[in-house]
Design a binder for these strands. Structure first.
Lengths: 267, 267
DNA sequence: TAAATAGTGTCTTTGAGACACTATTTC
DNA sequence: GAAATAGTGTCTCAAAGACACTATTTA
């Protein structure tokens, strides 16, 4: 016990090295056929007026919360949705990575645990917390380069290292669609195969061959299961009514559904 | 500026919510044809006498260090090797994940950022820091279940949630060998294809077909490049002298080298 | 009727894996 | 010589992708 007290005296962050821990969320959804990310506009310095990923400090000791719970709480606060009901329930949430470079927050040492969320279409967010605005933003409007930096001239500049975090989240999302059935997390509970294809096309930024995609999805065990019903025809421009499917019970796609034409990115 | 001071007053971890940040390292290597992980025996409570992943507190403000630097520093301290020279230089290091469940450390709220390291054979470690022993340990001796728990009767019990962290690291390593050339990170600068196959067999725990593996490795662009030289024959039991290769310039394997027979793990 | 789309048929090419085989080395 | 191993040849089967085609719906 004396050992333990010595240890605590040497390392308690109150006495020694104050590090703050935050969570940030890369929340992705599909709106109007395009991939969107949830951003908030910062009301206060640093980076006041710039856009940022929703996030905030983890409740460490008082009301101590687990990291995924903190991510859901911050997301709920920013979107104005209640945690524990509706669309936030069907959302997929996974840890993306932790960003702790000294100096990434000018105020103090902050370690940020980033989460990645895939959601079906959610309502327009209501700004809350430290934000004076919140909006779903098309990722193409952010001018993200592969290196995680924003091209000059982009209107919505991202605070902190959030351009890097977002770029990592997008690459993770693109990869996950290859070997998991998580594209269904962007869809309502029942969806058609053309809708599922639209998810792939929005995330990958590439058109896919409709016929081959259809056959491939049905050939992967557990990807989707039929409902026996047919979609209504709202918002369509012609053609037969597609069948409706639900997500299947597979956790991995085998064989995977690989992105076409990636030979350049390999070296 | 008043805004910023208010913000700091509300959130500075010294006044508010003390959270400590550590790094832990899952350092893997191949010894005697088997996959080993570096473990240290804890000299002090909590979990005194149990084995743990090497790690420690991140230097947050005084001598603030980036997270990967902290991982290398902790690894160097525990192995007795100098950071910045020799085998630790060729090592592959990547972030594995962050573990922050309340109660995972009985003393206080600790968020641990785990790193995963692949190293060529390293010397026997020398215990340092808070450890009274350090050893490369065959992962098969730890009785890890798929759920990240240790089977009853295992002699080396792991402290904290390190069984979970290690299980996650092993699964990451197995997956990475499928679609990246990182198996070469376990090899010396020049290696033979049978040696590379032994890496795959140790990490996957499965025998591979020598002939098909050979052809596959040579057919993936940029996986390995020939040196034009031939291995000496030390420690071998017969057969022709295999050719020597170096790691190529590919960062991804295309097509990937998939694990055989995973159909069961998909649901 | 024209255009768009869902869904299927089929052919080609690539790649994974099984099996066989030769050549080279150790014991 | 026997056993082990490096490396290659070849065959089969699965799957990806290109292309064609039919059926069904909207405008």
């Amino acid at each position: 016990m004396a050992d333990e007290r010595d240890f605590l005296a040497g390392y308690d962050p109150r006495d020694y090295d104050p590090v703050a821990v935050t969570v940030d969320v890369v929340a992705l959804t599909i709106r109007d056929g395009a991939l969107h990310v949830l951003l908030v506009r910062r009301a206060h310095p640093p980076f006041a007026g710039m856009w940022a990923l929703p996030g905030g400090f983890v409740r460490g000791v008082r009301d101590a919360e687990d990291l995924p719970d903190a991510a859901v709480r911050e997301l709920a606060e920013e979107t104005g949705l209640e945690a524990g009901d509706g669309p936030l329930e069907r959302m997929h949430l996974e840890q993306l990575g932790t960003y702790g470079r000294p100096g990434r927050d000018p105020r103090m040492r902050v370690i940020s645990v980033a989460y990645l969320a895939f959601a079906p279409e959610l309502p327009e967010p209501k700004a809350g917390g430290d934000a004076d605005d919140a909006a779903w933003t098309p990722v193409t409007a952010l001018g993200l380069g592969a290196s995680g930096e924003q091209r000059p001239g982009t209107t919505r500049k991202l605070a902190f290292d959030h351009a890097r975090v977002l770029a990592d989240g997008l690459e993770r999302a693109r990869a996950k669609l290859e070997y998991t059935p998580l594209a269904t997390a962007f869809c309502p509970p029942e969806f058609t195969i053309p809708e599922l294809r639209a998810v792939y096309e929005a995330v990958w930024g590439e058109e896919l061959h409709a016929g081959n995609f259809h056959r491939k999805v049905l050939s992967v065990p557990g990807f989707v299961e039929g409902t026996g019903t047919t979609s209504d025809r709202i918002g369509r421009r012609g053609g037969p009514r597609p069948k409706l499917y639900r997500a299947g019970d597979a956790r991995l796609l085998h064989p995977a559904l690989l992105r076409p034409g990636r030979e350049e990115e390999i070296r």
